[in-house]
Every structure is written in C-alpha cells, then in structure tokens.
C-alpha cells in the first residue's frame, strides 16, 4: 500500500469511529432520561464532532480546519455552561 492510501484509509476509519461516537452521544441526548443526561450527550456530541473535524483536516492535509475545530469547541463550551446554569437556576442571565 502506498503512504497516501494508508493515510486515507486509516484516517477515514478514525473518522468513522468518531462519527459512531457522535451517534451514541446523540442517542443519549434524545433518550434522556433527565435533562442533565441530555446536556451531557450534547457536550459529548460537540467534543467528538470537534475531534472529527481535526481528523478531517489531517485527511485533507490542510491547516484550514483548525479554526473550525477551535470555534466548535468554544461554542460547545458556551452552550454546555449556559444549559447547566439554566438547570441550576432556571434563568440563563441573572
């Protein structure tokens, strides 16, 4: 196998595993049973989505996906913090 094929297949497999992880997180998010379980599922979905973008950037060999991954990580962090705060007090801004 050529090196390009090794990279393409190996990184594609890693991407597939991360997408499967995203599917499991989505299942937990839809299934619940309680609100905190759903938020935990959403946080895991964001995390694995970010890692999948990093692997996609490796596969295309460009550094352009770095910003996308970083922004997704920041949005995921803000969303989870806001939702957890909402669970605690029932108000996002106070």
């Amino acid at each position: 196998m050529s090196t390009a094929a090794v990279l393409d297949w190996g990184l594609g497999l890693a991407q597939g595993m991360l997408v499967l992880a995203m599917a499991l997180a989505t299942w937990r998010m839809l299934r619940g049973p309680r609100a905190q379980d759903r938020i935990l599922g959403l946080d895991t979905l964001y995390l694995n989505g970010m890692l999948a973008i990093v692997v996609h950037g490796m596969r295309t060999g460009s550094g352009l996906y770095f910003e996308a991954a970083l922004i997704l990580g920041m949005i995921g962090f803000t969303a989870t913090v806001a939702l957890a705060k909402f669970l605690m007090q029932g108000e996002v801004i106070q």
Binding site: A21, A25, T44
Partner: peptide
C-alpha cells in the same frame, strides 16, 4: 478515536 468511542460507549 478508539478512546473517544469507548467514552461515548460509556455514555
């Protein structure tokens, strides 16, 4: 990816 998948499986 396997470690992350194991984590999601734990969920």
């Amino acid at each position: 990816a396997s470690v992350s998948l194991t984590g999601a499986l734990g969920l």
